[in-house]
């Protein structure tokens, strides 16, 4: 695999909460190579989504630490720069943006990357990717996520991913809202995408179905804004599945750590 795509050290993130600063992440370290998949696990409120939002540059977060993306200082880059250079966040509940179609958004996004496509060309490009998801171009012509079901929103995120071809993919509960078959299908699509592009994935999930076609290289267990445990491969996932978070916390605090 080789090349490092992301190095995160001492990542601290806080938010303004009723005019008080509250730290959510208290120094996180990990690294990721091209083509790798990292799974972040943890209870609700552990800070999982905050890691992804900090990497994407969410303006509501105050972020410090040292983060290198392809060797460059990520924290100095504007959100749009991060997007343009290939970071892609699929958030937990994708926003509805009235008046803008997915097609129009993708066309602008590609134009920012130096690729000017006519309306016909972009539609053609989208059609090819939409087919993989069992969708057609009309899905993309609708206003961005407006009135979409939870599952449709998630499919729309994957559609955007397939068109924009990012190198670092941040998936925050991509499977929520998807039915069993759709989860399976999207897992396959993601695996295929990774194989083709050598993109790195950071995946947050409570549902292992989405991982079934992916090879998990690293796992992080997050607790109260800190890394509680790490494993190579998916060992940790299997333990949590078997014993639950509380079981694993007990084992670790019982001296195993």
């Amino acid at each position: 695999m080789g090349k490092k795509i992301l190095t995160v050290s001492e990542l601290r993130v806080s938010v303004k909460d009723k005019n008080k600063k509250r730290e959510i992440l208290h120094g996180i370290d990990f690294e990721l190579l091209r083509g790798e998949t990292l799974v972040i696990l943890g209870e609700n409120g552990a800070g999982k989504s905050t890691i992804l939002n900090a990497l994407m540059g969410n303006p509501n977060l105050k972020v410090s630490g040292d983060v290198k993306f392809l060797g460059e200082d990520l924290l100095k880059m504007k959100v749009e720069e991060r997007g343009k250079r290939g970071i892609f966040l699929s958030s937990q509940s994708p926003l509805e943006v009235p008046g803008i179609s997915t097609t129009e958004m993708l066309r602008s996004a590609l134009e920012e990357r130096g690729e000017r496509l006519s309306l016909d060309q972009i539609r053609e490009r989208i059609t090819v990717e939409a087919k993989k998801l069992g969708l057609n171009i009309w899905f993309s012509e609708r206003e961005l996520n407006v009135g979409f079901s939870g599952g449709e929103k998630k499919k729309n995120e994957i559609l955007q991913l397939l068109v924009l071809k990012p190198g670092l993919v941040l998936l925050d509960e991509i499977d929520s809202g998807l039915d069993v078959d759709a989860s399976k299908k999207i897992s396959e699509i993601l695996a295929e995408y990774q194989e083709e592009t050598w993109a790195a994935f950071i995946v947050i999930t409570h549902n292992l179905r989405i991982l079934q076609s992916l090879k998990v290289d690293k796992t992080i267990l997050l607790r109260d804004g800190m890394i509680y445990a790490k494993s190579e491969g998916d060992g940790l996932i299997k333990r949590i599945e078997r014993d639950g978070f509380s079981g694993v916390f007990e084992q670790i605090s019982g001296g195993e750590k």
Binding site: G57, K78, V79, E80, G83, F88, P94, L95, V97, E112
Partner: peptide, 16 residues
């Protein structure tokens, strides 16, 4: 601001 963040995260400049 959320809509701006969403579009910008796809690589679209603030003005656009």
């Amino acid at each position: 601001e959320e809509a701006l963040f969403y579009l910008k995260s796809r690589g679209i400049s603030e003005d656009k």
